[in-house]
Computed example of a mutant assay.
Amino acid sequence: MFDLTAFQRDLLYTVSSFAEPHGMKIKRSLQNHYEEEISNARLYNNLGELAERGLVRKGKLNDRANTYQITRQGLRELRRRRQWENEYVPEGLVGT
């Protein structure tokens, strides 16, 4: 997980927040938090890499769209990342 880019981690968190989102739903959700436009190439290349690493499962919605679902391995990696973050950002510090 520590070798993922920040964008890939954000993708993983976003995918985990939906049941089986398609790419454009993921993009719209992320776009609310990014100041610059997220290109389709950036989105799908990174989703593909996460799928290759076994962190998300790629499915088929229809002939034009795929769905993405976080895997158990992906969830474990998110939990590890959260534990690591909690070691460095004490509870109650955020937002003060």
Rank of each mutant, 00 (worst) to 15 (best):
K60G: 06
K58L: 13
E37I: 06
L11V: 06
G59K: 14
L11Y: 05
K25V: 13
L12A: 12
T96Y: 13
D3M: 00
T5Y: 11
E20F: 00
L61V: 02
D63R: 12
Y88W: 14
L78A: 13
E35V: 15
N66S: 12
R72S: 09
S16N: 11
R81K: 06
L50D: 13
K60H: 09
N32W: 00
Y68M: 01
Y88C: 12
R57D: 00
H33G: 14
A41P: 07
N32L: 12
V89A: 05
E87V: 08
L61T: 03
K25G: 02
K58A: 03
R76C: 08
R72A: 13
F18Q: 01
E49W: 14
R81H: 15
R57T: 01
L12D: 04
G92L: 04
R64D: 14
V94T: 09
R9E: 06
L75F: 11
R79Y: 06
G23D: 06
R9W: 09
Y88Q: 03
K25M: 14
I38Y: 12
T96H: 11
T5N: 02
N40Q: 08
R28H: 12
T14V: 05
E85G: 14
E20S: 05
N45W: 15
E91H: 10
M24L: 06
K60W: 10
T96L: 08
I70M: 02
M24E: 08
T71S: 11
A51S: 11
R82N: 14
V56Q: 02
Q31V: 10
N40H: 13
L47Q: 03
R79K: 08
L93F: 14
N66G: 03
Q73M: 09
N46E: 09
Y88E: 02
T14A: 13
A6L: 07
G48Q: 15
F18G: 03
W84H: 15
E20H: 08
D63Y: 00
I70Q: 00
K27N: 04
E36N: 09
F18N: 02
E36H: 13
Y88S: 01
L50W: 03
P21G: 07
L30T: 10
E35L: 10
I70N: 01
K27I: 01
E37K: 13
Q83P: 08
L78T: 04
G48W: 11
T67I: 00
E85Q: 15
A41N: 10
L75E: 15
H22F: 10
T71R: 07
